[in-house]
Structures are given as C-alpha cells and as structure tokens.
Write a protein that binds this DNA or RNA. Structure first.
Length: 916
RNA sequence: GCAAGGGUAACUAAGCUUGGCCAAAGGUGUAGGACUUAAGAUCCUAUCCCGAAGGGGUUCGCGGGUUCAAAUCCCGUCCCUUGCACCA
C-alpha cells in the first residue's frame, strides 16, 4: 500500500484513489482538455446529453457519458482536434416541482434528497442545504456541482470552460432566435389541446405532480359524447366505442348520483354533476341550469341518433358518475357490463349484434368462459379482451350505411359524423382516477391557444430523411428506427404555462417546453464564452447578431463597438470552425423525442457541414439483473462507483462489459471478472523493470501479434465497435503475455517492446492507470495527449504469426492423439511435407499427374481444405521450438522431412504425426 | 394490434451483415491437476456423444426451402423483451 497502490475493495489491485486525484489535478492545472482551434488538424465535435440537474447521476447515466469520453480521448489520440463540452439542463417542471414539494415538507421528497445528500455532505449540513432547496435555483446549482465532481472523478476529458445552463440569459436569446426562425418557416401553430389539470391548483400537472404518476401512468383518453334527443331535454352519454351506436338498447344512469341540466350551444342536456364540472373545463360557455331528479330522467324516453329508435333509461349501480358524463348507453350485444347486469337482475333485454369478428370470442362466450355471472373479478379483463378482439378483427354489421366498415374505420366515421351533425361532443377523461401529491383531483381540461411545432410538414420530413440517410449510425439498425420516428411525428405542443425555461418571444404567456429548447443547443458550445460576453455588454443578443453568427448572414457589423464587434466575429469563426456535431451519443429512448427534434430542427435551420454527422446509441443499463429503480434499491450512484471501485475499472467495464448497443448489467460477478484482468494488467506494469530487449523468435512473434491486435483495434474503433476494439488491445494482449510466459519468454522484455504504444492505446479507457505508468516508465508528457502511430502494417510479420499458429496446431494434434491412444508413447515423430508433396500439388493443379504419384490423390483430396496456402518453413519452425513442444506434450520429439511418395502424406500445414 | 430487437451447448454470451478452417470465442459453473500446512487466490487441463491415431456422429427455438455446403441466406411458425408520445 505504501507504494501508492491498494488492495481495492474488490479484492484486486486497483489504482489508489490518490493516484487518480494526482492526475486529475495535473490535467486540470494544465487545462489540457480545453479545446483550442488548431487548423493543422481535423476537428471532431462530440456531444452527449446535458444532464438535468434535479439529482445526482447513477451507473446507468454514466454509460453514455463514459462512451463519449472514450471516443473523445480516442479521437484526440489519433490526431483530431477534439471538442467534448458539457452544459446543464434546468428547463421544465421537475426542479420546480421538487422545490415546491420541499417547501411543503413532502415526506418522500425530503427523504429522496436526504439520500442524495448523505453521499456528499456531512450529516450536520444536510438540513441547511435541503432548506435552501426551496429555491429551485439552488437545487440546480447544487446538483450541477455534484455532477461536475462526478464527471471529473471519472476522468472525463471534458472542456468545462464552455459550461452554461439552459437558464442562462444569453442562452435564452439563442432559444428565442430559434423559435423566431421556426415561426418564419411556418412551423409554429396554435390549437386546442387536452391536458391533465389540477382542480384545486387550477393548473396543468405533469407526471411528477401526480401521486404515483411515475409508476402508474395517467394519460388522456378520448370519449365521444353522444347526444340523445328527449322531449324536454337531451342526454349526453360518453362512449369509447361510438361504432356500437346501432346496437344501443337503452341508457343507464346511476340511481345514487347527482344529475344536473346544463345548457350548451342552446341545448339543454342532462349530465352527472361530476361530469358537468369536467365538461365545463373542456368547453366554453357551459351554463348550469338546475339540479334534476333521477325520476325525471327515468320517466323520459330518448332517441338514438342516426337510428331513429326511441329507448328508455334504466338505473344501474355500475355506472360511475365520475367517469365521463355519468350516463352511458347500453349495448348488451357488445358490452359485458351491460349484458351481465341484465342477466343478474333478471331483466328483459334484446341483443342486437353490430360487430362481426368471424370467431367465437363474443360477449356470451366470454361470460361463460370466465363465469362472470358469479365472479365479477375478471369483468374488466374480459371486457379488454373483447374490445381488443373486436377492434382488430371486427367488421360492422346491421349499422345502416356504416355496415361493412372495419371497427376502426367505423369508429372514426361515426364519431366525425356525430360531431359534424351536432349530435356529438368530444369529452376527455383520465385513464385512471388520479390526484396530485397535494391531494387535488386531476381531470382533463382543454387548453386553448396551445402552441405546437408542426412536424407534420412534408418538406421538413423530406429534409430530415435526407439528413438521416447522409449520417452515420452506430449501430446501423437505428437509421431505420430514426426514419420511422420522423414519419410518425406530428404536431408537438412546444410551450407550457409553468416551469423553468425561455418565454416564447411572440407570446410571453408561454414558456418553451423543455425538450423543444434543447434541440440545437450544441451550437452554443462552440462559442459560449463569446456569446455570454456579448450578452453582458449589450444586455441582449438580437436575432441579427445570431443570424450573423450562426447562419453566416451579413449585417452591418460596424455599428458595434470594437470589443463587441471582435466578440461577434470570434463567435462566428468559432462556430464555423467547430459546428457540425460530428457525433452525438445518447440512448434509444430519445429516438422518438429528443433525437427526432434534433434531426428535424437541424434540417429546418442548418445546412451543409453544419448538419450532424453521426449518431451513436448506447443500450440500457440494468443493475444486478433488474431495471434500475429506487424501489428495487439497486441504484448505484456515480460517486459510489469511484469510491467503492475505481474510475478506471468502471470505464473498462463500460468498454468491454457489453457491446455498445446491448444491455449492460452492472453486477458484482461481472465486475469481478473484469477486475481480475485489470489487476493482471496493473500487476505486470507495476512489476516492470527495465530489461534487455530480446530478439528470440517468441518475442518477434509477441511484437507482431501486438501490432496485429493494434491493427484490429484501430479498425474496430473506426466503426465504433468499442468492445471488440478493447478485447483486441486488452484481453488479447494479456493472453499473449501468458503465451509468452508459457513459451519461456520474459514478461518484462515483452512489455518493454510494446509498452509505449500499448499505454497510449489503452489510455482512452483507463486513463489514470496509463497516465501513472507513462510517467513512471516512459515520459513526463501526458499520455492523454499523446498521438498514436497508426501506421502498424510494417510492424507485423505475418509469417511469424502463421508459424506460431501452425506450431499451436501441431501441439494440439499431438495432444489429441496421445489422449486417444491410451497407452502413452514416448516419442512423437513429426514428418513435414517435402519436395515430392510440393511437386504433386503442382501436378494436381496442372491436372497432369505422373503415374507414380497417383497413389497420393485420395489422401490429398481428403485433406485439401486444411492445407495451408501460405507455405512456411515447417521444419525450421518445429526444430527451433522442439523443446517447447516436448514440454507441452511430455513426449520426445523427432522431426523428419518427407522424402518419399506414400499413400498417407504430410501436406503443407499438416504434418503426419506418429507416436511410438 | 403496430414497430423494433431477440431465441446458440449446464448457465451467460459472441458468431449471423460478407454461407465453408464453426462442435461453434470469452466468462461462469463442474471435474482433474500444479502451488499451498490448510482455506482462499492463481495457473494448467478437460467439459455434446462415440473412438487405441489427428476421425466419425448429432447440435445453434420449431418446420420447410435454396446450395456441393447453412447457426449464418429465403419462406412459414411458435415463444420472449422493449416502445407506442408530450414526459425529462
């Protein structure tokens, strides 16, 4: 331990934290990762998502960021001018919601934040910090610091000098500029939009405002309100299945609920009291007239629209006054609830079938199958089964002009006809009963004047497809998914009434929604400091300046003072140098939202080299076999990783633990197996002593093999196959060390011959260890800044690689033979091919075989597919390695060269072996 | 239902794009051995079946097909996982 290494908690020889700290500090002191414009190099701009600062990050988040850093370091290593920046996202409602909940002393929230803070803070400070979180700004600030520390500890080569947040004033100018452009392009429009709404707070609510909203999702469901004409007043029912309209036999109301008469669009209609409340929030000018007795409804008859049948109203206790309008129409032919109610209460009823599925899944059979008359448990499940079956397989029958349509077509058509002919009204309901964390009821309200980005525009979709098809995808399969996502996109609400963010420039009642403010934010990384300075000087950055900087439009630049002008020009130059996000790394769940908008907005606003270059999607991370979640207790924070394991081990695990696109399981067993190999690496380097270089055959093989692995490594990295690349340069090289040792070589001598290039090649994944050994044995420069000589071809002797492979196969064959023959011999006689066999092959290829050679034909054909094309001097290889073969097989070895024509012959790569 | 991904030896997991040196990598487990007072760790060997000569047989969800040749290509079929929207 005294020498700076520790027996890490995983039982291995991981790098001591103090060593990691040493190099972190050294890198920071010299600012080596700050990106400077260097026109002598090709630039490479890589981004990962900016973290949302409402909490600390865990193993899962770390994967994407680590991959970003590995790529950034790799690109630097092969000679690129790399920009790998980071900023923070604060927009949206969660931070706001959390701080409100802390102010309200919400138990769960306090516990959550206490848990976060316990990792980072002394116990006595925690209460004060949590108290400060009543200000949303303090949450964001606190966690951005935590994340910076985590990222720094993990050795990320981030250029922090460009850091900003989505709440920064200068950045918000950029967002407004973007929205002005979207508006100019005709991509913004207004419309109605149903939202989840808190009755007490009279405000929109998001998932995190709703009790259990994260685990049990609430969404908006669309009902068709159908108007049934009566003599004195109408009834409004709410249905999910308007296509069954022609199967209606009666109406149901709840005998114990309150009903009222309202006036809407000059019609009096009955509705449950609870339904009225919701209805009035979804439609304008809804007037309350009076309460009404149930009997007054039950005594009345009503007419079914489109189907002039007069029906009665019955009371039924299964009708929920708080679902829809509290009045439902009864279709016993297609509704299990209705059918069962009639049966159970021994009421007379008729069945009219209006949907035909062509199989025997129907109301009657399902009721029998699940014994629903006696067991109401399965009522809901059976209803779902029936609805699904009828929706996907059903055709309308007995439905006047709608007969013959599929259920989905019929449903849309009947709904639209009802709405158009004033016989229907849209009604929205939540998918489940929900309330906010503070206990207020959540319902659906209609927002007027909602702003949308219209992603349905064909010209934009075409541009987006072109862009996608010109980009690189790692892995390739996501290209198709991305194209599909673009096709599927339609209008997207892009502004909200609450939350942190930028106000719409042309309608300041609205705050730009948090995903929409993050679609092209990467442009700001290129020149964040210049933009901030411009803002500070002018108190604003107008669109003219932004057009100049980001779209290269010409303006009268001379109207600004010297310093500002210089900043503006600098900003434009830096943008022009860096932009074009060469690689964006993120995760597949972003495809249908962030990435789709990223592609669309870039395609709309930018062109040419400023468009994104490639996309890499990393698979999900699970922890100890299951999805990472607080309830499972398997959340491992990034801090815990650097404390309990080490940054290098984590990074190595990310690199080799699984293919970039596949699922990665963070678990002790797999960590231990990676750790084992990592320890081996550390140990051989730690024990290194300068020694003589050696020119023996086996060293020559070792070096050739190393460069062969390095070659594979480079090829794999070019297509972002990070795992394959590091299996070559790490695992395979480690295995070569074992072979070297088994073959009587000395590890030190081998290491000496490859250490320089090996440390450089390994440094993107395990930068701390490599930095330490680089300084210890090679040089006092930073290995993180070293360039790798990628010209490896000259260093590979393919002949010697083939020889070693040949040797291995001979040993294998001898072992196999001696295993099969149970009485072990003492000597193995290896006979390699000679001139006769060479002559034969030549003659065989010429199809002109001398008679005395013909005896060899059968044997040759049998062995042909195993014979080496490339001939090596087998006799020499075997002779040189005689003692190795003897050791490996435990037999004496005699080597002969074939000097005769026989029936069974040795062939190139395939000597005959006889054990006696 | 739609879309995407996947089903490989005891388990886990590569390979499939570009068919053949694929009985099929690596890891885990299991068995034997070396080292050790012992345990642990580490290393070596074996691990579908048969075999007294490097061979043969049967395998890659299931059923067909293409081919001299299929885990790999095509068709069908069954099963599993994930996503299906305004939420960062």
């Amino acid at each position: 331990m005294g020498n700076g290494y520790c027996c890490g908690c995983t039982g291995g020889m991981n790098m001591d934290n103090s060593i990691e700290q040493k190099w972190r500090d050294a890198w920071k002191k010299r600012n080596i990762f700050e990106a400077k414009v260097d026109p002598s190099k090709k630039k490479f701009f890589v981004t990962v998502p900016w973290p949302y600062t409402n909490g600390s990050l865990h193993v899962g988040h770390g994967r994407t960021y680590t991959l970003g850093d590995i790529v950034a370091r790799y690109k630097r290593m092969i000679g690129y001018d790399v920009l790998f920046p980071m900023a923070f996202h604060e927009s949206g409602t969660p931070i706001l919601a959390f701080s409100e909940r802390i102010a309200n002393k919400d138990k769960d929230t306090l516990k959550l934040y206490r848990n976060y803070l316990m990792e980072y803070e002394k116990a006595e400070n925690i209460d004060d910090i949590i108290y400060s979180f009543r200000e949303p700004k303090n949450i964001a600030e606190y966690f951005s610091k935590v994340i910076i520390k985590d990222f720094t500890d993990l050795g990320y080569s981030i250029d922090w000098s460009r850091k900003f947040t989505s709440a920064d004033n200068f950045y918000q100018c950029v967002v407004r500029w973007q929205f002005n452009h979207l508006k100019e392009l005709g991509l913004l429009k207004k419309g109605e939009y149903p939202i989840l709404y808190s009755m007490n707070d009279e405000n929109a609510v998001g998932e995190d405002d709703i009790k259990d909203g994260d685990t049990d999702k609430v969404s908006v469901e669309e009902f068709t309100g159908v108007l049934f004409k009566g003599k004195n007043f109408d009834l409004i029912t709410a249905s999910l299945r308007p296509e069954t309209l022609f199967g209606v036999t009666n109406l149901w109301i709840n005998p114990d609920a309150d009903y009222v008469i309202i006036n809407y669009e000059n019609k009096d209609m009955a509705i449950s009291y609870l339904g009225y409340i919701k209805f009035s929030l979804q439609h304008e000018n809804v007037k309350f007239k009076k309460r009404i007795n149930k009997e007054d409804i039950l005594n009345e008859t009503f007419k079914v629209p489109f189907y002039d049948r007069v029906i009665s109203v019955y009371a039924a206790d299964f009708v929920d006054p708080d679902n829809g309008t509290g009045i439902v129409y009864s279709v016993p032919g297609h509704s299990i609830f209705d059918y069962v109610y009639f049966k159970k209460n021994n009421l007379d009823f008729n069945i009219k079938k209006v949907v035909e599925t062509g199989n025997d899944i129907n109301v009657e059979n399902l009721v029998k199958k699940y014994n629903l008359l006696n067991d109401s448990e399965k009522l809901k499940g059976a209803t779902q089964e029936l609805y699904k079956e009828e929706f996907y397989k059903g055709t309308l029958i007995n439905s006047s002009k709608y007969t013959g349509l599929s259920v989905s077509e019929g449903r849309d058509m009947i709904k639209n006809d009802l709405l158009n002919e004033d016989k229907g009204i849209m009604f929205y309901e939540t998918t489940r009963k929900a309330e906010t964390r503070s206990g207020s009821k959540v319902i659906v309200a209609i927002l007027k004047d909602q702003w949308f980005i219209d992603y349905s525009k064909v010209w934009l979709k075409e541009k987006a497809h072109d862009l996608i098809n010109s980009m690189k995808f790692y892995p390739e399969l996501y290209r198709k998914l991305m194209n599909d996502a673009i096709d599927w996109l339609r209008e997207r609400p892009c502004a909200r009434k609450r939350g942190i963010g930028t106000r719409l420039p042309f309608d300041d009642r609205w705050i730009i929604e948090s995903l929409s403010d993050s679609t092209i934010y990467m442009i700001t990384y290129t020149n964040a400091n210049e933009m901030r300075t411009i803002y500070d000087r002018l108190g604003d950055i107008d669109d003219e300046i932004l057009d100049y900087v980001y779209l290269n439009k010409n303006i009268d630049i001379n109207k600004y003072d010297d310093k500002t002008r210089k900043n503006i020009i600098d900003a434009r130059e830096k943008f022009n140098y860096w932009y074009g996000n060469d690689l964006r790394i993120t995760a597949p769940p972003h495809i249908s939202n962030h990435l789709a908008f990223f592609i669309m907005n870039h395609a709309a606003i930018f062109k040419g080299k400023n468009l994104p270059g490639s996309l890499m999607l990393s698979g999900i991370v699970i922890s100890n076999g299951s999805k990472i979640s607080k309830s499972k207790g398997n959340v491992v924070s990034l801090l815990e990783i650097t404390r309990r394991y080490s940054a290098d081990l984590y990074r190595l695990f990310i690199a080799v633990g699984a293919d970039v696109s596949s699922l990665l399981d963070w678990n002790e067993k797999d960590i231990a197996s990676v750790s084992k190999r990592y320890d081996y690496f550390i140990n051989i380097l730690k024990d290194y002593k300068d020694s003589e270089e050696n020119e023996d055959y086996i060293y020559e093989w070792f070096v050739s093999s190393f460069y062969n692995h390095l070659k594979e490594y480079l090829i794999n990295m070019e297509s972002m196959k990070i795992r394959d690349a590091y299996i070559s340069i790490f695992y395979s090289v480690l295995n070569d060390f074992k072979t070297l040792e088994n073959r009587g070589g000395n590890i030190n001598s081998g290491l000496k011959m490859i250490m320089h290039d090996w440390l450089i090649a390994m440094s993107p994944v395990i930068p701390y260890s490599c930095e330490e050994f680089w300084h210890m044995y090679i040089n006092d420069t930073f290995v993180s800044m070293e360039e790798l000589d990628t010209n490896v071809e000259d260093k590979i002797n393919y002949g010697i690689l083939a020889s070693e492979e040949y040797l291995g196969r001979v040993v294998e064959d001898i072992k196999e033979i001696s295993r099969i023959i149970k009485n072990k011999g003492e000597t193995a006689i290896i006979t390699v091919y000679g001139e006769y066999q060479n002559d034969f092959i030549e003659m065989f290829n010429r199809k002109d075989i001398k008679p005395e050679y013909k005896i060899m034909i059968g044997d040759y054909i049998k062995n042909r597919n195993r014979i080496l094309d490339k001939q090596i001097n087998e006799y020499a290889v075997l002779s040189k390695n005689r003692s190795y073969i003897e050791n490996a097989t435990g037999l004496k070895i005699e080597i002969l060269k074939s000097k005769e024509v026989k029936q069974k012959n040795p062939w190139p790569g395939r000597p005959t072996i006889k054990i006696i």
